[in-house]
């Protein structure tokens, strides 16, 4: 009945959805943000530790939501660790394109391995009502990076 849904719910998504990585609160985070999807009730808090030269030393999140949103946040925290803020934002831009269109024209140039890791979520583009589930974490990341220490920024994927 649901075989064709394996494109959307690949094993890696189900796995990250059930057991999200970096699912914790970071004490003394340098940046944090809250992401809300008011339509469906998905909600997450994102925490970043930064190095003095602006690299993301650690990324973690807490929250609740569907398998897609949890898996996306989990994969994102794994992917952005060690990246500069500018690289993380570039990944976010490419990922939103991937989620909306299923393709990533720029993915051959730089950050290719990182985008490869996010590829399992590309199936979401066939489900317009679910794209926001996949992009919430990345909107939240942008909000966190734009913030200042001690400030909790708000993001919404509406």
């Amino acid at each position: 009945m649901f075989d064709d849904l394996r494109d959307l719910y690949q094993e890696v998504i189900l796995d990250h959805g059930r057991k999200p990585r970096n699912f914790r609160r970071l004490e003394n985070a340098d940046r944090s943000a809250r992401g809300d999807n008011p339509m469906c009730g998905d909600r997450m808090g994102l925490f970043l530790k930064l190095t003095p030269d602006g690299h993301i030393a650690d990324a973690a999140f807490q929250g609740r939501g569907c398998a897609i949103s949890m898996a996306s946040a989990s994969l994102m925290t794994e992917t952005v660790k060690g990246k500069t803020a500018a690289e993380a934002e570039e990944l976010g831009t490419r990922f939103r394109g991937l989620a909306m269109t299923g393709t990533c024209p720029d993915c051959g140039t730089g950050l290719a391995d990182e985008m490869e890791r996010l590829q399992p979520l590309s199936g979401v583009h066939e489900y317009p009502s679910r794209v926001k589930c996949a992009t919430l974490a990345w909107h939240t990341l942008n909000a966190a990076l734009e913030g200042t220490p001690g400030e909790e920024r708000m993001a919404s994927s509406e």
Binding site: D4, L5, C40, G65, C66, A67, R130
Partner: peptide, 26 residues
């Protein structure tokens, strides 16, 4: 073992239209 949104996406694949969320009754 399934979030309502994941479940409704599955049901949609079977041609079944149900609503997922909190139905304006949070």
């Amino acid at each position: 073992n399934a979030h309502p949104h994941d479940l409704s996406t599955l049901l949609d694949r079977a041609g079944i239209a149900v609503r997922a969320g909190r139905h304006c009754a949070e």
